[in-house]
Design a protein around this nucleic acid. Sequence first.
DNA 1: GATGAATGAGGCTTCATTCAT
DNA 2: CATGAATGAAGCCTCATTCAT
Lengths: 223, 223, 223, 223
Amino acid sequence: MICPFKNKPRWARRKDARPQELLAAALDLFVERGYAATRLEDVAAQAGVSKGTLYLYFTNKEELFKAVVRENMLPVLNEAEETIDQYEGTSAELFREFILGWWERIGATKLSGITKLMMAESGNFPEVTQFYHDEVISRSNAIIIRMLERGIARGEFRSIDVVQANKVICAPIIMLMMWKHSFNACQNEPISPENYLNCFIDLLLRGMLADTTAPSASLDSPC
Amino acid sequence: MICPFKNKPRWARRKDARPQELLAAALDLFVERGYAATRLEDVAAQAGVSKGTLYLYFTNKEELFKAVVRENMLPVLNEAEETIDQYEGTSAELFREFILGWWERIGATKLSGITKLMMAESGNFPEVTQFYHDEVISRSNAIIIRMLERGIARGEFRSIDVVQANKVICAPIIMLMMWKHSFNACQNEPISPENYLNCFIDLLLRGMLADTTAPSASLDSPC
Amino acid sequence: MICPFKNKPRWARRKDARPQELLAAALDLFVERGYAATRLEDVAAQAGVSKGTLYLYFTNKEELFKAVVRENMLPVLNEAEETIDQYEGTSAELFREFILGWWERIGATKLSGITKLMMAESGNFPEVTQFYHDEVISRSNAIIIRMLERGIARGEFRSIDVVQANKVICAPIIMLMMWKHSFNACQNEPISPENYLNCFIDLLLRGMLADTTAPSASLDSPC
Amino acid sequence: MICPFKNKPRWARRKDARPQELLAAALDLFVERGYAATRLEDVAAQAGVSKGTLYLYFTNKEELFKAVVRENMLPVLNEAEETIDQYEGTSAELFREFILGWWERIGATKLSGITKLMMAESGNFPEVTQFYHDEVISRSNAIIIRMLERGIARGEFRSIDVVQANKVICAPIIMLMMWKHSFNACQNEPISPENYLNCFIDLLLRGMLADTTAPSASLDSPC
DNA sequence: GATGAATGAGGCTTCATTCAT
DNA sequence: CATGAATGAAGCCTCATTCAT
């Protein structure tokens, strides 16, 4: 009998698949309802299992949430870190690609909901907040700062305060994700991420580029 | 009976103040803990009344929340609108003053909590979200756009997409308020609003100013 | 209208009575079922209130149990301490009275169930165990040791190892309480506490009294 | 096939041992944690099998508990009965040896846990309690009473109430086992069984010995 | 026989809301 | 008007038991 799962009984295959199914369901519900308002019973139901099964794979709600973050956010950060270290083009191009990549991998996906959720509920759940800060925010900041320092070192960017600039750069990206999960629903003309990001990139690059560089040369889509 | 408040005995004055006291307490706690984590008993206690009394003034938790948002945001906008229409200096100066004024009047005050609150909870309260959008966000946007158009009309700013630029400008300000109410607690070095805002103003002005304008001339605190 | 509770509305009187009612119900059920097997909902029901009401008066199950101990055991210990310090008769008489008093105030009452419960379940609930050790066991030991030292100092008792003797004296008393709550039910001839205690007192006194004392003189009920 | 266990293949030997392994594991955990707090999963794990396997040998948790008690207590009593009937020394020496032997064969071993277990859980398992009473307690009592009667008959012990004295003698031994499994953990100075038992033997012998006997002569370790 | 994934009833605890005083 | 005691629905988590493989 030809069977694609020779080595494992169907039962065991379930065990392998369960965590992913639960994480997917959890991501959906956390994003849709927020951390506190998500009931683990609903997560289990959406994954097609019972309440108790969830606890076979995740110690508690907090650990489930952390696993969602780890499963979804960390790979994106790893990729981003690699990209920057290996990039060979100009820093302006890198900046543009980084921002658009961020939007593509996180902002435009469900993951943007995690960012929104953390901003909204970090006050409670201090342990989750600390985890998120250490695993996501710190690394994001480091990535952006490294990118800025690369530009400065290569004489492409002015000698700006990278710590503050990092935050100024983060802010519009994070806000775009927050708007998506808050006021976009009730606006007549929801934000166009493309236009918004191009405008943002253009303004920021003009603000950061060294005077010797002709800004227009490095900006292919002025807004 | 001689009394400085002719029409009302002492306790009635107290009674009239109750809703405001409750709203102030609710604002504090909603901002600090979020909607779900705020206990009405704590709101009542902070307002100095009993739990039952709260229900004399607000039908339920949701109505209290809506009232908190409605009550707090409107008064600030009028002033901002006037300032811009009467300003006589350069647009760069206006921009700087507007940003710093925003921080001073809103960001640094309790009002920043309303912004945080709306971003965090808008998903759960469509009605008040719509209200907030129509009464607060739209007017804020109009103010900033008017300011940008003034700069463009006077030849001080490049001809940028004011709709998008408005959002790019809003974002760092809003994020500063959000950080203040979320992750600032767990960061080793909390954000310095002054440095952050100066860096932001510098980058944005460089991004917006027309090329003929010598950027350094209009920037008194380069970052 | 003549009313015996002029100063307080009926409502408030309930609040005053509730803790006692709940403690009484809790004592009953803890003794009957043990700590782990006692459901707080049943405690509340037996006290005639709902589950939630219990939490108005006691933080959680552990605190409820501690309160039961404090309410019931500590007064007996206080009394015992006083009695011993003020006693003026012979140490043999004191010993006899102490043992019989212990039985009367604790062993013969529901409180014996607390002792049994602690012996049975102390392994779990370490915090409760520590509390019980500090508040009850340590003090009981101190009382007995003081009593023994009094007898030795007055030349009535031999110079025995009071630390060990304390335990040897405790043991039969505790066991009597344990038997009452365990095997007594299925024995054809349940233990007679009076005979048992008299035999115990006689044997122990003979074991402890100094040789110069004629044992028979101080033992009024030889077994 | 040559095999030292002719009738059974290797795995079958394993299978025959299973119930004993499970009972041993269950004894450990029931004693350590009590009935309610013992998880069958942990029992199975400690026995090196899966949770499901346990249910092949025991209908449910209650039956496992009963089996644990039944299996462990019977073998020890026969030896004790023989020892007493054949003893030829003084009754004081017999008493001392009996007590110390009890501690050595039961108190210091895992079997002490059964005693603790029965005292703690007898209320919840009438059936096994009756069994334990009939098969263990009654026989133990008979042994001690026979020992006391021997001493009285030989004129070594006073004419005491042997039924009560039996219990008074049992109590400190049982309590020593109970302490070992309960409060010993949280006491700064855990009990020293040797000192405790010597003190106990000394006090009891002095209490029991006939006046003509010089107590000091028969007590080789006064406390 | 043996496994271990899955179940779901049950216990503890919280808190929005009610209502007798 | 004001109080605050009381309620009970709801959520998190545990674990004895089942059953497909």
